[in-house]
């Protein structure tokens, strides 16, 4: 199996309010097309780990490789370019740009990447929205949507550049049973059909159980699923 992500001895400290080690020697690999869930109690460091993997938090010790590239030590701008091409995110609290329409929100990462024409991107964005049942809201201001609807738009946005890895921090946290199923189905298909890798942090035991692999964390260490 092809490794798409490698974490080697990741350590992370918080200094505020008191020195505290959040992550202790985290080492693990993720294969291409794998659907991975990270679970654990609140404060066990699973969100922190995800943010390290997302390349947005650069203050850590250890080494991180993704899609064959060493990301540790790269500049903010290089990391931004890498994210644009290879990573898609779904955050815990949806985080759409409130002033833009749903369609614009989905299109912006692709426009930034600039690999396709605007027309192609638009078609693709509509397609992704359709996938999540949000295409009828395409022209609405994203701030006018409900939390669950925003969450689904955020997932569509994460998919727009066909990223190698999709990361989700509680991607179904705001969704009802039906929509959770839907999102899970989509992630599953992406992993199986398009060999995209999914890494999610979740509290939802059903969601975790159905994924390919579960990593359980406690006190900054992986205790199960290596």
């Amino acid at each position: 199996m092809e490794k798409v992500l490698e974490a080697k001895k990741l350590n992370k400290f918080f200094n505020d309010p008191a020195p505290f080690q959040v992550l202790k020697d985290i080492t693990f690999d993720v294969n291409k097309g794998e659907f991975l869930s990270i679970v654990g109690k609140s404060g066990c460091g699973k969100s922190t780990l995800l943010y390290l993997l997302s390349t947005m938090d650069t203050e850590y010790d250890g080494e991180l490789y993704m899609a064959g590239t060493k990301l540790t030590g790269q500049s903010q701008n290089d990391l931004a370019r890498f994210r644009s091409k290879h990573l898609g995110f779904v955050f815990q609290f949806h985080f759409l740009l409130p002033e833009f329409t749903v369609l614009q929100n989905v299109m912006i990462p692709a426009l930034k990447l600039g690999e396709r024409s605007k027309e192609e991107i638009e078609v693709k964005a509509i397609e992704k929205l359709k996938l999540l049942g949000m295409d009828e809201y395409a022209m609405k201001r994203s701030s006018k949507l409900s939390g669950g609807q925003q969450q689904r738009v955020a997932i569509a946005r994460a998919l727009i550049n066909d990223p190698t890895i999709i990361m989700g921090d509680e991607p179904t946290g705001n969704l009802d049973k039906k929509n959770s199923e839907l999102v899970f189905r989509i992630f599953k298909d992406l992993a199986e059909e398009f060999k995209q890798t999914i890494i999610t942090v979740t509290h939802d035991p059903d969601f975790a159980e159905k994924s390919d692999r579960v990593i359980e964390m406690s006190d900054g260490q992986i205790i199960k699923g290596l």
Partner: peptide, 12 residues
């Protein structure tokens, strides 16, 4: 918004 833009690949 700045954080979101950066997360989705915008540079400084």
């Amino acid at each position: 918004d700045i954080a979101i833009l950066k997360a989705t690949g915008f540079e400084g």
